[in-house]
Write a protein that binds this DNA or RNA. Structure first.
Lengths: 156, 156
DNA sequence: TTCAAAATCACCCTAAAGTATGAGGGTTTA
DNA sequence: TAAACCCTCATACTTTAGGGTGATTTTGAA
């Protein structure tokens, strides 16, 4: 902002200085070569061209850039695969780390036996865990547990 | 494009005409009031100011608007709840209408007994259907069936 | 160090799920 | 009309899931 204002002022000053300088040049020429009379039109044309250029330069310098804002809407796919665990729901349900782990494998379609093998624990342990999961999620079956867990964003 | 070019041309023509007219005016003034000698600076200043203005006008007329492209990313939720059944996958798996129906209820977390009651058929019928579903989806358990069905967009 | 969860495992029992086979009745299609 | 599905149901059997109880060991925080 401040820079813009300064540059604006400088441009005007430079323009004024140029005008003054040219007039002095004219005066000087008038006294040294008496050609004012028979070449007035030439001088006028010369000044006209010069100051037209100056005007153009001034205008370009001072004019605010005409900005055409083109709004391009860009589609952003959300949610699709950006999974963020719902910490709030997790703490509210009171699911432990291990229980969440079992729940995830459950959602993957694994049987309790397969989960047990994957986690290197006994089948009974998984049964205990899954029972706890059902209780904490307030459901009766694993399919319901998976469905609810997905709704709560506990699993992708 | 063509309009722009024409307008450009017209501006240049107007500028040239103005210049010529001013020179003629000068000439006329020179002949009618012999004030050329003692007011040369005044004339020069006059011409300078006039053509500065002309230059500014020209520049503003000719300068192309600077186009700034602003990309605005607009979040668009897609898919989230716009479910479209994957007909291709449906025909490929060879699932019948009833089997798909059972699959949907299965995904809702219903037990076979509940599905049977909802569809007013016997538990055995649902067992048969679900067995067929598992076979056609090439899975062993209902949780796997639900998972695969969702992947194939057979169910929301 | 102590105490409370959390994790582990074992039994027992019931319920639900899944497999296999057969069979009757309905619709569609070559 | 026969073949090919589809829907229905039954019976019998096996497997898996789930509920209940109790116990031991780990672990993390006060």
């Amino acid at each position: 902002m401040t820079f813009n204002y300064l540059s604006k002022h400088r441009s005007v000053l430079i323009y004024g200085a140029s005008l003054a300088a040219l007039l002095f040049l004219m005066k000087w020429l008038e006294w040294h070569f008496i050609i004012v009379n028979y070449a007035f039109e030439l001088y006028a044309g010369f000044i006209a061209v010069i100051f037209t250029g100056l005007g153009i330069w001034l205008a370009l310098k001072l004019s605010k850039p005409k900005t055409t804002i083109v709004t391009v809407e860009k589609e952003l796919l959300i949610s699709s695969d950006t999974f963020i665990l719902n910490e709030a729901a997790l703490t509210e349900t009171g699911l432990s780390r291990r229980e969440l782990e079992v729940l995830q494998l459950m959602a993957g379609g694994l049987s309790n036996q397969e989960i047990a093998e994957k986690l290197f624990v006994s089948l009974n342990t998984i049964k205990t865990h899954s029972s706890n999961v059902f209780e904490k999620l307030e459901v009766q079956r694993r399919t319901q547990a998976v469905e609810k867990a997905k709704r709560l964003s506990l699993i992708p």
